[in-house]
């Protein structure tokens, strides 16, 4: 089983994904040491949370296509384990950026936003494929940036469904984010990322 997990993680380019997550965290950590106005300080972490979520979602792409889909029952568990492992890694590196810096909203907010964005990315991967999995997190992040902007220029967007605009200790936002993550994990485990259609001819 260990060998199978190793080969599966390699085929999903998980080492490269981990390096990308670490890169995101280092850049965010360095950026947080600079001086930002209120907008920038609030919105900057969301951009990096989006980048991390996109990395997790893109790593769901399978290079093997149909032959892999028609193998045994181990594949859904491998997909789930890969997504969970990368999400935990992303949460860990984002939490680490809060050490010695002023991460807006704190670690709780960062992890909540990451969870929901990752869920959106996984759903997008199941629907559109791994290569296009970044579309949903990026689109949602734009909405989130706007929600943060409306905290100064009302009327403020306060729906729990737009969790980046909610405080870190808000239960409604956390629930919405968690539900989306669970939906994404289930979708990616059962269906996997949609395969890119083969070239015509």
């Amino acid at each position: 089983m260990t060998r199978l997990v190793h080969l599966h993680l390699a085929s999903r380019r998980v080492p490269a994904a981990l390096a990308a997550l670490a890169g995101c965290a280092i850049v965010l950590w360095a950026a947080l040491h600079r001086h930002w106005d209120a907008y920038g300080a609030l919105q900057l972490p969301l951009l990096f949370e989006t980048a991390c979520a996109s990395v997790v979602a893109i790593a769901t792409a399978s290079p093997f296509g149909d032959p892999e889909r028609v193998t045994g029952h181990r594949l859904p568990w491998l997909r789930m384990a890969t997504a969970v492992t990368l999400t935990i890694a992303a949460a860990a590196v984002l939490a680490a950026t809060g050490i010695g810096t002023d991460l807006a909203g704190g670690t709780t907010t960062a992890v909540r936003n990451l969870a929901g964005l990752t869920g959106l990315g996984l759903l997008c991967a199941a629907l559109l494929g791994g290569a296009l999995a970044w579309i949903a997190p990026v689109a949602y992040a734009l909405l989130g940036v706007y929600a943060l902007y409306t905290q100064w220029h009302g009327p403020a967007l306060t729906s729990p469904c737009i969790w980046p605009g909610r405080p870190g200790d808000d239960l409604g936002g956390a629930l919405c984010s968690g539900i989306v993550l669970c939906a994404g994990l289930v979708a990616i485990a059962i269906r996997g990322a949609r395969d890119t259609p083969p070239p015509a001819g």
Partner: peptide, 10 residues
């Protein structure tokens, strides 16, 4: 099963 277009990890 071998499909028309084989996918592989390079």
């Amino acid at each position: 099963y071998v499909p028309q277009h084989l996918g592989y990890y390079p």
